[in-house]
Simulated assay, not measured.
Amino acid sequence: MGKPMVLFLCTGNSARSQMAEAFLRQHAGNKYDAHSAGLNPQGVHPLTIQVMKETGIDISGHQSKSLNQYLGKTSPKWVIFGCEKAEESCPHVWPFSLQSESWNLEDPVDFTGDELEQLMKFRFVRDQIEARILDWITENRIDSETEN
């Protein structure tokens, strides 16, 4: 049996879900098949690419993906909603998904401020996401080991 699939969903698939996908691949890609998508793909935000590169993860080749790429074509074990809007718009997208979670992370794309303030917001959200990913991996370690 293959690795269990984890799908991170957000509104634009431009920041939060892209970061979560990249961190899960970085920290546990040998155990999980990480993907991300958005309700209304907006393209990967340049600051997302920049702040991830600061951690040594290059996502410059990533593209925003639509939720439609996955609907009816995949069976994720986990669906993790990065925002309330995504969760409210598709609460029962995968009725056969074993688990879903809501992380309700602040969207750094919506933050207004000067360039330095925006960069700081992206870094703050990035660090929150990495901590959530590391906690999630620890909490779900037994589940992933029983899959193999």
Rank of each mutant, 00 (worst) to 15 (best):
G2K: 13
K3M: 13
P4T: 09
L7K: 05
L7A: 07
L9F: 06
L9E: 10
T11N: 10
T11L: 14
G12I: 04
N13W: 00
R16F: 05
S17K: 00
S17T: 01
Q18F: 03
M19R: 08
M19P: 03
E21Q: 15
R25I: 00
Q26S: 11
H27T: 02
H27M: 07
A28R: 10
N30G: 11
K31D: 09
Y32L: 15
S36L: 07
A37H: 04
L39H: 09
L39Y: 07
L39F: 08
N40G: 08
N40F: 11
N40T: 12
N40C: 08
N40W: 10
P41Y: 02
P41W: 00
G43L: 04
V44F: 04
V44C: 08
H45E: 12
P46S: 11
L47G: 01
T48E: 03
I49E: 09
I49N: 02
I49G: 03
V51A: 02
E54Y: 02
E54Q: 13
T55F: 01
T55P: 01
T55L: 04
D58V: 08
S60G: 14
S60M: 05
G61S: 13
Q63Y: 01
S64C: 05
S64D: 05
S64I: 01
S64E: 04
K65T: 05
S66V: 03
Q69L: 14
Q69A: 07
L71P: 00
L71H: 07
T74F: 05
P76W: 07
K77Y: 08
V79P: 09
I80M: 11
F81H: 15
E87D: 05
P91E: 12
P91L: 11
H92F: 09
V93L: 15
W94K: 10
W94E: 10
F96S: 12
F96Q: 13
S97F: 00
S97T: 13
S97I: 02
S97G: 07
L98P: 00
Q99K: 14
E101F: 11
E101K: 15
W103M: 13
W103C: 12
L105R: 10
E106Q: 15
D107L: 06
D110N: 12
D110P: 00
F111N: 06
F111T: 04
G113T: 09
D114A: 07
D114R: 07
E115Q: 12
E115G: 05
E117D: 11
L119E: 10
F122W: 06
R123Q: 15
F124G: 09
R126V: 02
D127E: 11
Q128T: 10
Q128P: 03
I129W: 01
E130P: 03
A131T: 13
R132D: 08
R132V: 01
D135I: 04
D135K: 14
I137W: 04
I137E: 10
T138G: 11
I142T: 12
I142L: 13
I142Y: 07
I142K: 14
I142A: 14
S144W: 07
E145M: 12
T146V: 12
